[in-house]
Amino acid sequence: MSAAWGAARPRRATVVVTWLVLIGALLYFLGPVYWVVVSATKSNQDLYTTSGLLPAANHIAENYATLLAWTQNQFWRWVGNSVFYSAAAGVIGTLVSVAVGYGLAKFKTPGGAAVQVAVLAGLLFPIALLTVPLYLLFIQLGLVNTPWAVIIPSCVSPFGVFLGRIYVEASVPDELLEAARLDGASELRIFFAVVLRLLAPAMVTIFLFIFVATWNNFLLPLMMLTTNELKPVTVGLYGMMSYFNPQYGAVLQGALLGVLPLIVLFLGLQRYWQAGLASGAVK
C-alpha cells in the first residue's frame, strides 16, 4: 500500500520494455505448453500428419475415453492419490523445513553446522541411486506399498531447509521473539503463533516446491508402490508410454488434466503470497 505513494511513475519506455520482456518470456514458457494443449485434442494420426501449431480434427472425447480405458477407469483415483501424497508431503515437509531453518537461524544449536554440512553433502549424492537402498530399508520397515513409502522420503527437502533458513533470517526479527518470551509464551507457541505467521510467503513457496516435486517424482513411487489403487498419476501415465505405440493424445490429455489441481493450488496459494507481502511490513 504505502509503496504506491512514494513510487515515482515509471517512464513510458521502461514500461514498454518491461512488458515486452515479460510477454516474450511468457511465450517462451507457455509455447510448449500450448503444443501439449493442441496435441491433446488430436488423434495419434493427426499428431504426425498435421502441423504442431494448429489444431486438427477434434478428438478430445475419444482421447478422454482412451485415457480412461488405458487407466482402467482409475485415472481420477490416481490424480486423487497424487494430490494426497503431494499435499501430505508438502505440509509435513514445509513444517519440518521451516522448523530446522528456524532452529538453525535463531538458536545456538550445537551441531547445527554439522547438520547443515550433512544436508549439503546429502544433496551431492544423486537421489536416483539411493532409491534402491531406500526401497530395501522400507521393506524392512514394512512401509512398502503404503502411502508412507512415498510421503516420508518426499517430505525431506534439503532445499526447503536452506530456503527456510534464509527466509527466517530475512523476515523474523529477534525483538518479536524476545517480546513473546517476555510475555511468557512457550517456544513451541512462539514458533506456531508468531514465526509461522511471519513466514507465510516463504512457506507457500516451500510447500509449492515440495508439492510439485512429489507430484512429478516418478522413480520413487514406481519402486515403492505396486497396488494399482495406490499409483500416483505420473506413474500411470508413464505406464501408458512404456509400450511401443502409446496413445499420445490420451497421455497428453492425462497430463493436462493432472496439471489442473496444480493450477488450482497455485491460484489458491496466491492469497498467502499477498498476505505475506503485507505481514512483511509488520514491525
Partner: peptide, 14 residues
Amino acid sequence: ATKFDGRAAEMITK
C-alpha cells in the same frame, strides 16, 4: 497380477 509401469530394466532392478 500387477502391472509394472516402468521400463524392463527398472523392473529387473526392483
